[in-house]
Simulated assay, not measured.
Amino acid sequence: MEETTENTHGCGDISGPGEDRCSDNDFGPSKLGTRQYWEDAYQKELETFKDIGDVGEIWFGEGSMSRILRWMERANIPENTAILDIGTGNGALLVELAKSGYSNLMGIDYSPASVELAKNVLQAEDLTDVTVKEVDFLNSQGELKGFDVCIDKGTFDAVSLNPDNTNQVKQLYVEALKDALKDQGHFAITSCNWTKEQLLDRFSDGFEFVQELPTPSFQFGGKKGNSVTALIFKRVH
């Protein structure tokens, strides 16, 4: 069954019903694209977790994680598959992947507070075999290689809002993704800022579109649309 609601926490700019989101430059830079914003945000969530055990908000809501897990099950992704969670945040997706039986997991984030929070959350769940590292994906310099699956829930949205060299940042992301994924490896992206058409264009070089995952839809003024886009790509050389 398709979800009817979804938490789009953190989205920098969601176009309204019927608006054209086909331009790659239709919203400007934001503090959501800065490292300091996320370090401050995750520092607060870390302190809250240590105080009361609350992991904080789940990016796009629990439905977004369930959608990815359902795709992985349908695609028969082996449990020992090397999986990279790009921009792991509080590590909630890593927890769900581990509980679903996936054993070769790594989460990365450029925020030290995020990394500490994710490690604390995993430890609280007694999931000690999951790797979490402080890594800037855009400047990983070959550190990230050999992954069968890369997952992004909102990280590309955030880096796209970087106030400095926005176009260069987006291209750096694509190149880093190419380096991280094995040939024929899969990339699952969930976005609230980019349409299917925009993502197809952005990841046209080195990737093959596989499928679109169903996301909640809305209807306004006789027009139907989606506030979230979820796509699967395959790495091709």
Rank of each mutant, 00 (worst) to 15 (best):
V95H: 12
V95Y: 06
L97C: 02
L97R: 00
G101M: 06
S103Y: 11
N104R: 08
N104E: 12
M106C: 07
M106G: 00
G107S: 06
Y110K: 12
Y110A: 12
A113L: 03
E116W: 03
L117E: 06
K119Y: 04
K119M: 13
N120Y: 06
V121T: 07
L122N: 09
Q123T: 13
A124Q: 12
E125G: 03
E125W: 08
V132I: 04
V132W: 11
V132P: 14
V135L: 08
L138H: 11
S140A: 15
Q141M: 10
E143S: 14
L144D: 10
K145P: 00
K145I: 05
G146C: 07
G146W: 07
G146V: 12
G146P: 01
G146F: 07
I151E: 00
D152R: 03
D152L: 02
G154Q: 04
D157E: 11
D157V: 11
A158R: 01
S160F: 03
S160V: 10
N162V: 13
P163V: 15
D164K: 14
N167K: 15
Q168I: 10
V169W: 13
V169A: 05
E175S: 14
E175A: 15
L177W: 00
A180Y: 10
L181E: 02
D183E: 15
D183L: 09
Q184H: 11
G185K: 02
F187N: 02
I189A: 01
I189G: 00
I189L: 08
T190S: 11
S191V: 08
C192L: 10
W194F: 14
K196F: 12
D201H: 09
F203L: 13
G206D: 02
E208S: 10
V210I: 15
L213E: 01
T215F: 06
T215S: 11
P216V: 03
P216F: 11
S217C: 06
S217R: 12
